[in-house]
Computed example of a mutant assay.
Amino acid sequence: MADTDRKDLVAAARALDAAGHMPQKSGNLSLRTARGFVITPSGLPYAAMTEADLVECAADGAPLSNGRPSSEWRLHAAIFSARADAQAVVHTHSPRATALACARRGIPPLHYMITLAGAVGRAGIPCARHATFGTEALAQECVAALGEGLRATLLANHGVVALGASLAGAVALAREVENLAGQYLDLLAAGLKPVLLSKAELADAAAQLKGYGRPA
């Protein structure tokens, strides 16, 4: 794994932490490697984390370097195993998306930007069924919610998972999920019922967005 990739992973974790998307050492990020994946460590504040603290794991999650991987290593391993298109995985506890997840409620197709998650025809971004954090059960519920083409899901009573063909793409998508969750909560707080986009409207939006600032 290139040194620049490690630097980018640390920088992304720090940026999401500074934005309030990974409070109290929560959340984790990973990048696929030839031998498996590299993931952020367990229990270390992101502001203090360096490239040397990242933990390389085999495809099955077995550590290949010193340090203790994030407690959610099973989640990352399962996504990389199930989704060949995933080169990076970002898991956050961003506040507004997590609030929806705590209601076990997904995000409906209320705005065309939801197509960045690959949600065309999938009725928005779902909320995966609940399972205890750090378990294989949670990993499998996440994989099931993502299916074959979706790139983001909420985790019941937990947070957000986004994947991408690049780290930048996965980070951008995780940020967009938080933005969409905020829009949905604002509508609910105002007592307004969102007018949802149809499958045809979503397909048109996805086609229009293709190649235009689209997270990979």
Rank of each mutant, 00 (worst) to 15 (best):
D3E: 15
A12K: 04
A12L: 02
A13D: 04
A15H: 14
L16S: 01
L16D: 02
D17M: 00
A19R: 14
G20C: 03
P23D: 08
P23K: 10
N28W: 01
S30Q: 02
R32M: 00
R35K: 15
F37M: 02
I39L: 03
G43N: 05
E51C: 08
D53T: 13
L54N: 12
E56S: 11
A58S: 14
A59E: 14
P63I: 11
P63M: 08
N66D: 15
R68M: 05
R74H: 06
L75Q: 09
I79S: 05
A82E: 11
A82Q: 12
Q87W: 02
V90A: 00
P95H: 02
R96A: 00
A99Y: 04
L100Q: 10
C102A: 13
A103D: 06
R104S: 06
H111I: 03
I114A: 13
G118A: 04
A119T: 14
G121T: 07
I125Y: 07
T132Y: 04
F133N: 12
T135E: 09
C142T: 15
L150W: 12
H158Q: 08
V160E: 06
V161T: 01
L163Q: 09
A168E: 13
A172R: 14
A172P: 01
V177S: 05
A181I: 07
G182R: 10
Q183Y: 11
L188Y: 09
V195I: 12
L196Q: 14
L197C: 08
E201D: 13
A203C: 02
A205P: 03
A205E: 06
A205L: 04
A206W: 07
K210C: 08
Y212I: 14
R214F: 07
